[in-house]
Amino acid sequence: MNLNMTLPQRPLTIKRDVLSLPFVYYFSPPIILALLVAMFCMEGPGILRDLQIKQAPLELKDGDIQGSCRTKKAIFTSCEAKLTYAYDGVKHVAETDFMFVDLHSGDYEASIVISKTDPKLATLSLGLSMLWNRIISFLAFGFLLAAGLVLLLLTLFRILRSRGYIRQPGMLSLVPVAITASSESRGRLTLTYADTVREDKTKRMAFTQLEKGAEPIVIGESKGHPVALAAWHEHASVPVLLDSRLERINLAQEERANLLRTLTDQGLIGEQSENHPQAKSQFFVQSLKVFAAAVLLLLVALFGYWLWYVFAAPSQFTSPATDINNMMPAPLNRWACTHLQERFGDQNAPFGCVADDFKSWK
Rank of each mutant, 00 (worst) to 15 (best):
residue 126 L to C: 08
residue 126 L to T: 13
residue 126 L to V: 11
residue 126 L to K: 10
residue 127 G to H: 09
residue 127 G to S: 15
residue 127 G to T: 10
residue 128 L to I: 14
residue 128 L to Q: 12
residue 128 L to N: 12
residue 129 S to W: 14
residue 129 S to C: 09
residue 129 S to H: 15
residue 129 S to I: 08
residue 129 S to M: 14
residue 130 M to P: 03
residue 130 M to E: 15
residue 131 L to Y: 09
residue 131 L to M: 11
residue 132 W to L: 15
residue 132 W to T: 14
residue 133 N to A: 13
residue 134 R to Q: 08
residue 134 R to P: 08
residue 134 R to N: 09
residue 135 I to M: 11
residue 135 I to A: 03
residue 136 I to M: 12
residue 137 S to P: 06
residue 137 S to T: 12
residue 137 S to A: 15
residue 138 F to L: 03
residue 138 F to W: 09
residue 139 L to P: 07
residue 139 L to F: 12
residue 140 A to D: 07
residue 140 A to E: 04
residue 141 F to T: 04
residue 141 F to I: 10
residue 141 F to C: 03
residue 141 F to Y: 12
residue 142 G to P: 10
residue 142 G to T: 07
residue 142 G to Q: 04
residue 143 F to D: 03
residue 144 L to F: 10
residue 145 L to M: 08
residue 146 A to H: 01
residue 146 A to P: 00
residue 146 A to R: 03
residue 146 A to V: 04
residue 149 L to V: 02
residue 149 L to Y: 06
residue 149 L to H: 04
residue 149 L to R: 04
residue 149 L to M: 07
residue 150 V to C: 02
residue 151 L to T: 03
residue 151 L to G: 01
residue 151 L to M: 07
residue 152 L to M: 13
residue 153 L to D: 01
residue 153 L to K: 08
residue 153 L to W: 11
residue 154 L to I: 14
residue 154 L to H: 09
residue 155 T to P: 06
residue 156 L to E: 05
residue 156 L to A: 09
residue 156 L to S: 07
residue 156 L to Y: 13
residue 157 F to W: 08
residue 157 F to L: 05
residue 157 F to M: 02
residue 157 F to N: 02
residue 158 R to C: 05
residue 158 R to T: 06
residue 158 R to N: 11
residue 159 I to M: 08
residue 159 I to N: 01
residue 159 I to A: 04
residue 159 I to G: 04
residue 159 I to Y: 03
residue 160 L to M: 08
residue 160 L to F: 06
residue 160 L to T: 10
residue 160 L to Y: 03
residue 160 L to V: 07
residue 161 R to S: 12
residue 161 R to H: 07
residue 162 S to F: 05
residue 162 S to N: 00
residue 163 R to M: 06
residue 163 R to K: 06
residue 164 G to C: 02
residue 164 G to R: 05
residue 165 Y to G: 04
residue 165 Y to R: 15
residue 167 R to A: 11
residue 167 R to T: 14
residue 168 Q to F: 03
residue 168 Q to E: 11
residue 168 Q to S: 06
residue 170 G to L: 00
residue 171 M to I: 13
residue 171 M to N: 10
residue 171 M to V: 10
residue 171 M to R: 12
residue 172 L to Y: 06
residue 172 L to N: 08
residue 173 S to Q: 11
residue 174 L to P: 02
residue 175 V to H: 00
residue 175 V to N: 00
residue 175 V to P: 00
residue 175 V to Y: 00
residue 176 P to N: 03
residue 176 P to H: 05
residue 176 P to W: 01
residue 177 V to C: 02
residue 177 V to I: 01
residue 178 A to Q: 09
residue 178 A to N: 05
residue 178 A to T: 07
residue 179 I to C: 05
residue 179 I to F: 04
residue 179 I to K: 04
residue 179 I to Q: 02
residue 180 T to M: 14
residue 180 T to L: 12
residue 180 T to A: 11
residue 180 T to F: 06
residue 180 T to Q: 09
residue 180 T to I: 15
residue 181 A to E: 08
residue 182 S to L: 11
residue 182 S to A: 15
residue 182 S to M: 12
residue 183 S to Q: 13
residue 183 S to I: 13
residue 183 S to E: 12
residue 183 S to C: 11
residue 183 S to N: 13
residue 184 E to T: 14
residue 184 E to Y: 14
